[in-house]
Design a protein around this nucleic acid. Structure first.
Length: 919
RNA sequence: GCCGAGGUGGCGGAAUGGUAGACGCGAUGGUCUCAAAAACCAUUGUCUGAAAGGGCGUGCGGGUUCGAGUCCCGCUCUCGGCACCA
């Protein structure tokens, strides 16, 4: 294998030696240690200061779950990108905080524990070890002192502490000048003059409630709304999910709905993610209106109060509490039958069947604006979980109501002129008609006729409010965050119950509450479709752990521990804070460190991590939860900013082809051959699919494969040069060679492949080479600043190709090239930097600066267009006058031919680059 | 249905309204070699032409402009999210 004439050739083997050596040195030297303002991570006066005085730059990856399957080449894409950004920012003089922790609670380790009996902690720690090894070999510039896992007792302690802060607070809508804020529960106790848990507990931001929850028998646990797909199945495992009334912990995230929407304006996030969050929170403005009935007022929610005159019937959800009172004896049998049928349907079935069915209750209610009696129906297209569970039906303005009215032959009254004559509802803007009740109400009446929809809404809400029959209001789709799980492998709640069943926080000094050892890790699981099953957490089986004697201030008493555990979103809801002060045993993070790294940079700013990179799949789950916790902690004075992540960037995914044979079985993808657009495995044709990389698809390529074959630097350069970071794209192993060739060319500018001698020269670079260099620096800086690493690398390749072709290897041009290459291929760059005579790491070297004075352009290509088509090109001096350029252009032979003797009507000159001739 | 992103060579992808296809892969030819690999050099959107050149070309149809991948209008397809949300 080794070619004696090429001992110093930049092969994967040599790259590997260089890479591991530098990784060791970086670790020994603590090169990437980011200095904190205070505490144990503040550097001693005589230690390296590492840009401590520079502007801070806090960069984060969405931290990984340490899977037992190991990494494939898609996983590190984001980590490489953030490392490139971090190294670049460091060379710009910034104090860069970049570390990687592990989101280590999670289902796979628990499932592994259930099937093997291995403790999930042991399995998780060994997976973390494996992942650390794979990632270390990539040469990421992380501050290893700041790495942690969410299962570390020290981390769990603060996760539980935060839970207690939330448990011990309530949302005061009056606080903060009416904007609302979390406040200590003690203030509420004082305000209400009672400490009765029956009163107080229902105000807490973390509270227990008996409410319909998503029960997933297949997983043996309940799930948050965000963890259930639109199809009514669990996002994890794709098991059916049923609605059950169960007593569970919730987080009052709905109190923050407005702030979570409004503050999206204050962060620099992709529009797609912002819109997903807005969508999920689903704020809609409208009115609540009361319709009088024999059973009392029926309150409806509508976003179109302007169409009230067109409300010709009402529909209640089958589960609505007033249904029983409204149902007349004659209708009782039909109503009950319909209710039973609706209850038997799953949410999915109810959504699937879009035909409009319903049953008349036998009663009517009074339309408050027309005074007329309208029939009240029940129908399953009205959901109890949204608005008030009852609607006023306006068939002229709402397509669903229109369909129902058509089905049951109910009157359709247009209230917007544009609907007249249409065979369907009209929900757009227009001119209001048929909306005047001054005849019935005389001087107290109102007329909306002639108004626009928006004006009519305002007018009718004012009228309703003046009569006490309605009020302008806002509703949200967002539900409170269901926070308990019936799992073993999660943070225990720091909560105990007294004999009366009231919840108490465990005192701080007893944190963390650690998981007990259990004989059996599994929750009781059930057949996936067993609707009647009940959740049963594994911790409930450990009697000696559950029952505990404590003195909570009123003497030693017996308490019962909460046996649910937290969802695995808990740790990731605050980990950004812990990175700023990971070893602090006294507080979650020293306020000075927290403020330095995460606080607002300017007055009125929301603060947060400077750059957060991760996949778009967390758009509403993790990112919504983390924002909520951060805001709650802000309200309570524990953090200095209102948003955790200032700038968010969603990287694309690396995807891969997979191949199936005629039986539909996956075949080893790397053994498939392509001939004329057809694919063959062992001579037989196979089908190509495009999608994920995965073991079962037999198309996995691992970073280890790449280290082995090309080295980490080549792998890094390839991943960064494949395309824009935010776009998904297919992996192609055979294209990696291009990146290796590039690095080999750079290597050869400095090192003789045969002798290993340095070949760069100390002579001055030519003006032409300097010009190319400074043009490249200017271009690369622009691309780096915009995170367009693929084009930055293209510029570096172009420059390298220029140097190779012109045989230029003067130190003056090679050094800046090495520095610009350093963020992408740090090991190679360090090695060359050392060969260029530097003893210090280039991690803190100044990034090259372009000197425009050195960029010479002695000639420019001028394009000559005739009628918009390129007909000729000229090499001209950049300073050429418009007159001279025009004359030259008009004399160019091919241009003369294209003009073909026609009159020149107009000449547009953009000297020196363009002349456009119109004939 | 609503919201968001996108459609450019054989492939991944470049292009402040001003030379479409930078850079890379692959392919073809060459140098070196006994040979091969590697490396290096050249060519590589497509049709036409000996060449010079010319025609066509950025999902489709219109428009604005001296000039459109880029701006405007209308459609279409792909991907992602939400969805009987009143």
């Amino acid at each position: 294998m080794t070619n004696p004439t090429h001992d110093y050739r930049y092969t994967s083997e040599l790259a590997g030696r260089i890479e591991t050596a530098w990784q060791d040195r970086w670790e020994t030297d603590g090169t990437f240690h980011a200095p904190n303002p205070v505490g144990v991570l503040a550097p001693a006066a005589d230690a390296p200061q590492h840009n401590a005085g520079g502007e801070k730059y806090f960069i984060m990856d969405m931290f990984p779950y340490p899977s037992g399957a190991g990494l494939h080449v898609g996983h590190p894409l984001g980590y490489i990108a953030t490392d490139v950004v971090g190294r670049h920012q460091r060379m710009l003089g910034k104090n860069v905080l970049h570390a990687l922790g592990y989101d280590a609670y999670g289902l796979p380790a628990e499932l592994h524990a259930i099937s093997t009996g291995e403790h999930p902690r042991d399995n998780t720690l060994s997976n973390i070890g494996n992942m650390r090894r794979q990632l270390r070999r990539l040469g990421l510039g992380h501050d290893d002192r700041r790495s942690f896992a969410t299962i570390d007792p020290e981390f769990v302690k603060w996760t539980q502490w935060i839970f207690i802060q939330i448990f011990n607070s309530w949302y005061d809508p009056e606080a903060n000048g009416g904007a609302g804020a979390a406040r200590p529960i003690s203030e509420l106790v004082e305000k209400l003059g009672t400490s009765d848990p029956a009163v107080i507990d229902q105000y807490r931001l973390a509270y227990l409630s008996d409410s319909p929850v998503n029960w997933c028998p297949g997983l043996g646990t309940v799930l948050a709304n965000e963890e259930v797909t639109a199809e009514g199945r669990s996002e994890r495992g794709n098991f059916p999910v049923f609605k059950r009334n169960l007593r569970q912990w919730n987080m009052r995230i709905t109190a923050y709905a407005d702030r979570l929407i409004d503050d999206l304006e204050r962060v620099d996030w992709p529009e797609a993610v912002k819109s997903m969050q807005r969508n999920w929170i689903g704020r809609s403005h409208g009115a609540e209106v009361d319709f009088a009935s024999a059973a009392g007022d029926i309150r409806v929610f509508t976003t179109r109060p302007d169409t009230l005159f067109g409300a010709t019937f009402m529909v209640l959800s089958p589960e609505h509490p007033l249904v029983e009172a409204l149902t007349t004896p004659e209708q009782a049998a039909a109503v009950e039958q319909y209710q039973v049928a609706a209850a038997a349907k799953t949410d999915l079935e109810r959504q699937d069947d879009k035909s409009k069915t319903g049953v008349f209750t036998g009663s009517t209610a009074t339309n408050p604006v027309t005074g007329s009696e309208v029939p009240v129906f029940i129908a399953d297209y009205v959901l109890m979980g949204y608005g008030t569970g009852a609607i006023m039906a306006v068939p002229s303005g709402d397509q669903r109501d229109f369909e129902f009215a058509t089905e049951y032959d109910l009157p359709i009254v247009p209230t917007v002129a544009e609907q007249v004559g249409q065979e369907q509802a009209y929900s757009g803007d227009g001119t209001i008609i048929n909306s005047d009740n001054s005849e019935q109400f005389g001087a107290d009446g109102v007329s909306l006729n002639g108004l626009t929809v928006a004006a009519a809404k305002e007018a009718i809400i004012a009228w309703l409010e003046s009569r006490g029959q309605g009020t302008g209001t806002t509703t949200y789709r967002l539900r409170d965050w269901l926070f308990s799980r019936q799992r073993y492998w999660g943070e225990p709640f720091p909560i105990v119950f007294d004999e009366a069943g009231n919840a108490h926080a465990v005192p701080d000094h007893m944190l963390p509450v650690e998981l007990p050892e259990v004989p059996d890790y599994s929750p009781r699981t059930f057949a996936a479709d067993d609707v009647t099953s009940e959740p049963e957490p594994p911790l409930g089986r450990v009697d000696e752990w559950v029952h505990i004697e404590l003195d909570l201030g009123d003497g030693l008493k017996t308490y019962r521990r909460e046996t649910n555990t937290m969802p695995n979103w808990a740790g990731s809801s605050w980990y950004e804070i812990r990175y700023t002060d990971p070893n602090n045993a006294k507080v979650m993070a020293d306020p000075e460190n927290e403020r330095y790294w995460l606080g607002p940079r300017e007055a009125g700013g929301a603060g947060g991590v400077d750059l957060y990179v991760g996949g778009v799949e967390h758009a509403v789950l993790h990112l919504l939860y983390a924002r909520f916790w951060h805001k709650a902690l802000f309200d309570l004075g524990h953090v200095s900013g209102e948003e955790p992540f200032h700038r968010l960037f969603n990287q694309g995914y690396i995807q891969a082809y997979a191949f199936t044979d005629e039986r539909g079985t996956y075949v080893q993808a790397d053994l498939v051959e392509e001939r004329d657009g057809e694919f063959f495995f062992e001579g037989k044709p196979v089908n190509r699919e495009y999608g994920k990389m995965g073991k079962s698809l037999k198309n996995v390529v691992t970073p280890d494969d790449m280290y082995e074959e090309y080295g980490a630097d080549t792998f890094r350069v390839y991943e960064m040069s494949m395309g824009p970071l935010d776009v998904s794209r297919p992996w192609e192993t055979r294209a990696v060679i291009g990146s290796q060739r590039f690095l080999q060319r750079v290597w050869r500018l400095v090192v003789d492949e045969t002798t290993g001698e340095n070949v760069f020269d100390e002579g001055p670079a030519s003006a032409q080479a300097l010009s190319a260099l400074h043009q490249t620096i200017a271009d690369v800086r622009t691309e780096m600043d915009a995170m367009r690493f693929n084009t930055a690398i293209a510029k570096l390749i172009e420059f390298t190709n220029f140097l190779t072709k012109e045989s230029v290897s003067s130190r003056d041009v090679v050094e800046p090239l090495v520095l610009m290459l350093a963020p992408f291929a740090p090991h190679l760059a360090e090695e060359l930097w050392q060969r260029l005579g530097h003893t210090e790491s280039l991690a803190f070297a100044d990034y090259p600066v372009s000197d425009p004075a050195l960029i010479i352009q002695d000639s420019v290509t001028c394009v000559i267009q005739v009628l918009g088509k390129v007909r000729g090109k000229l090499d001209v001096s950049p300073g050429i006058s418009e007159e001279d350029l025009t004359a030259l252009a008009l004399a160019e032979p091919n241009v003369v031919r294209a003009i073909d003797g026609r009159d020149v009507r107009k000449v547009i000159v953009k000297a020196p680059k363009l002349v456009s001739i119109v004939v």
